[in-house]
Design a protein around this nucleic acid. Structure first.
Lengths: 155, 155
DNA sequence: ATAATGAAAGTCAATATTAGTCAAAGATAA
DNA sequence: TTATCTTTGACTAATATTGACTTTCATTAT
């Protein structure tokens, strides 16, 4: 019923491998062949679904023996998660990236489910309801960063 | 009582599916074709008949493989209290009044301390950081109302 | 060594495929 | 009649797909 588009299916495939392994290493053209899409669609999937906001690191190499390697990283392992995230957010963030950030915080148990939902609602496009996109994205960044900064001062 | 208009019929159709399933996931154009109406009429039906006040959550995605998904949720007992608050807030609220609203929700145990703090941070004048006071107050109203609407149901 | 070749992956913009918005026109009810 | 609800469609926005062109790297030939 769901995931009718190929990108979602490829995403699930890669994540199913990552569920059992530390990382995935693919040959772009092989995955493209496997799902009958053009190679550059793999880049699209990675760019939209395996960002650092989502908690993934991607590295690759071109030329003979080239590869794309995707690794799931745990933000809590970093010296300071919140600082890292705040840097990544900067002064503007899209709803999609915000979702990824909040999801990562939930997975790392910085936020519980209810808190994560609250933040997503507060920063939802429709909630903010401003027509200027730049303003919307900067408000979202301010709200999330405000909350992240608050989290570091409470027990 | 006869309710012979198409919007009512589409409403009944969707609700009959929801009687047996947790949620419905449709392709807008398919339903529009099925009932011989323009696609945007589906939006009209959803907007007028599947509101959160009636206990429905709606989410959608555009682009290839896009969909509209309607989910029936359980409304909580607090729902009418929330209605009252939403009315009181209207389309603008000062930081001081917002504090009072959040405080009372905390006292009524609708929110715990951490959640209350989150909301106050998200709607704080410095967090929002807009110069225009009217805009600030209306953003604050939208955020709090968005959250109150979210608190209506069990997720 | 250096140059040429081929085998990868990357970029980007055009196109395709959905859903959303809004306001005008039409229909119905009060 | 008038107010509200419904229907329609033109326009907008978001997301996905595709392919031509570019860049990088390893290997082979000179």
């Amino acid at each position: 019923m769901q995931s009718q588009n190929i990108s979602d299916i490829i995403e699930k495939y890669l994540k199913s491998i990552l569920a059992d392994a530390e990382h995935v290493e693919i040959r772009r053209s092989e995955i493209a062949d496997l799902f009958n899409v053009v190679p550059s669609q793999i880049n699209y999937v990675i760019k939209t679904r395996f960002t650092i906001q989502n908690g993934y690191l991607v590295e690759s190499k071109r030329g003979g023996g080239g590869y794309i390697r995707i690794e799931k990283v745990n933000l809590l392992d970093d010296a300071d998660v919140l600082d890292t995230l705040i840097q990544v957010i900067g002064d503007s963030i899209t709803q999609r990236d915000a979702y990824a950030v909040v999801q990562s915080l939930y997975e790392d148990e910085v936020l519980n489910r209810r808190e994560a939902q609250l933040i997503l609602v507060a920063t939802d496009r429709n909630t903010l309801g401003v027509d200027d996109h730049d303003l919307e994205n900067s408000l979202r960044a301010r709200i999330i960063i405000g909350i992240l900064n608050h989290l570091r001062y409470e027990s």
